[in-house]
Amino acid sequence: MEPLLTIQAPEAALFWVLAPLSVIAALGMLLVKKAVHSALLLAWVMITLAIFYIAQDAVFLGIVQIIVYTGAVMMLFLFILMLVGVDSSDSLTETISGLRPIAITAALGFGGLLVSLLGHATLGREPVGLAEANGPGNVQGIAVLLFSKYVWPFEVVSALLITAAIGAMVLAHHQRSNVRPTQREQAVNRFRSGSLAGAAGLPGPGVFARHNAVDVPALLPDGTPAPSSISATLKARGDVIDSSQFQLDNVDTTVKEEK
């Protein structure tokens, strides 16, 4: 009897090229130091899986894999990596002693068991192939199943999606502990805060005509620098330039004749 499903040479070639590459990328995910590199390698594994889906007559899933996984999910991962940034947890040092040998031994055991189990197991029938099931088209076939046999799980999954979206919003929501003061309240506070010196706003930085920049404190009428004219951030960074060189007493007023 002729087997129902024969895997053609192009598909076999595709498999033997892409499968080692995906395994190498997956191993690289464990070994590279930076989380961003891990994310890129995972994106590559997902793309190879999408190609395998398409090669296995699961066109719809292949496209969805690219859109949902390599598109949405990996973008989300990279976005969060950008937010969280890189920190010491990227290092590959062992924090629990002896964890890595145990993990690798257990993985070899588990993987070997799984592979040998698959090698010995039989379904009791020949692989059928999807030529018949995909008769009217892969998308149509999945749609018929989704809206007849699996319509209840489909609805439940939609409820799960909405719950997850709301959950993410609740988790990401950041509540202010105090009410933000309005412009009116700020104005009232300025006039009632002890002295009236800052009521009209703080002086601006810079010495006009000599050095007009935010890192130089303004000079008061008596020639002394006004510390309140400098941003507190610049002060903490130590980026403030001494303004004494711009005082009138220190200005070199001797005129040199140009020849």
């Binding site: 719809f60 899933l61 379904l123 059928v128 999807l130 892969n138 999945i142 989704l146």
Partner: peptide, 16 residues
């Protein structure tokens, strides 16, 4: 693909 039905693909879709 082995079973010749699309049920597995629908389940994979739910997994996604």
């Amino acid at each position: 693909r082995i079973n010749g039905t699309l049920d597995g693909q629908v389940v994979a879709f739910f997994t996604m």
